[in-house]
Design a protein around this nucleic acid. Structure first.
Lengths: 246, 246
DNA sequence: ACCTGAACACCGTTCAAGT
DNA sequence: ACCTGAACACCGTTCAAGT
């Protein structure tokens, strides 16, 4: 017994250390960044504050990520890859393309709802190439999508058309859904409940006023489901079969 | 003749003065901000640089706008109001609701394409109320929309459903369209054309590789037109007539 | 009434220096 | 090898002071 490890010393008196002292790595940094954004919002994410959260000076982060912008890109990549671990999302169709796209859509939606404050990044960051459309903007997922539909008999043109329709549907729906959950925000997130939540000059807009209650109802779940169904029907119509030689 | 005006003196030697010396106002500031974002992108918009552009110190701006965040909100408002001046957009239906929505959709699209670098703001800024959905997120336009459909015989529920479908369609389409035009971007906008525009590890993704050409084709115009048609058909289906007593 | 100078707190980022 | 201190340029914002 050679006595207690010296390394313990600085944990012992550090009440609630920012994080257990694990050596830094790009993954750990990005993970912390995701957590930080989930908790405090995008505008609060600062190299210095992120360093603090990791028990390190901001400058130490530059060993692993080349800067703040690069960090945000890594963050987006992480979110999209999170779906790979989702067992409901398939790598390739097993019960037809409709089931395949259903699972994919719900997978993306789960990610969006799990990270409502980070999701707008997925939408607004410039992609590697303009044809990598958010929110399915990694080469991996686009390959999965296109190859999946091809293997189900879609021809090239239909695959691409379906990809476009699918992404634009997802982006519109999910962005609106997370923004209703109070997504991006400005500097201070503490929304001042003191000011009336409804704009004051409302009486000038009789129709809005009358339908306000109905407008506020949240049916995101069924709406997503229904619109997705409709999308799949549209995709079905834009579909040209192809004979697969194999 | 009391000699030349003293005020001219600092214009005379100032080669290419940042702007003709007009007294400041909120409108002028917001207008300059829009121009600045159009030209240099969102991340380049800085109180100090905006002041410089207006021939004034940054601190002077605070007399007219309460801060940067407020400025961005005003900017969003301006963009949306830009459509009021669009003679193709109607205040109320004249040739049926389909024509009405067609004009509205194209009006929003023109704004988005005229300000591709500012449009993501319209999408991601938190609205006054969660039911003010981007991109139709001013009380004025929501009133116009809902009242317009009501006057065409839609009942309350259909109006709201149509509003939801319409906004989510527009948001998805237009955000993807402007992001393909290289919208948001990080710090430096000078996109480095030196690095190959195509991600390097492309050969690992055979389907993407093969369809790359097709994926890059830009058919935004016809795509918008077609999807809009489909949307209108969907709206037609979700429509319950109501008897208007008047 | 309207703008400016100086100041403050906070950024991102670099780099020589510490261990 | 990995992190820190000090420094730099640049933010947003406040406020007393100038005109």
């Amino acid at each position: 017994m050679r006595g207690r490890l010296d390394a313990d010393a600085d944990v012992v008196d550090g009440i609630d250390p920012p994080s257990v002292r694990v050596s830094l790595s790009a993954d750990r940094i990005v993970g912390a960044a995701v957590g930080f954004v989930d908790e405090f919002g995008l505008t609060s994410l600062t190299m210095r504050r992120l360093g603090e959260r990791l028990g390190v000076e901001a400058m130490a982060l530059y060993r692993y990520v080349s800067g703040r912008e690069a960090l945000l890109d890594l963050l987006v990549g992480t979110l999209i890859d999170e779906m790979r671990g989702d067992s409901d999302v398939l790598e390739q169709p097993e019960d037809g393309w409709q089931d395949f796209l259903q699972r994919l859509a719900h997978g993306v939606r789960r990610v969006a709802l799990a990270h409502p404050r980070a999701f707008p990044l997925v939408a607004s960051r410039p992609a590697e190439a303009p044809w990598l459309r958010p929110p399915l903007r990694s080469l991996e997922w686009v390959e999965t999508f296109l190859h999946g539909l091809r293997s189900e008999g879609f021809d090239d043109e239909s695959c691409v058309a379906a990809y476009r329709a699918f992404t634009s549907f997802l982006l519109g729906h999910l962005l609106l859904e997370v923004s209703a959950h109070g997504a991006d925000v400005g500097p201070l997130d503490v929304l001042e409940e003191t000011t009336e939540p409804t704009p004051s000059r409302l009486e000038e807009y009789p129709t809005v006023m009358r339908l306000r209650g109905r407008l506020s109802e949240d049916h995101s779940d069924v709406e997503f489901e229904d619109s997705l169904e409709e999308l799949l029907e549209r995709v079905d119509l834009m579909r040209h079969e192809t004979t697969t030689w194999s």
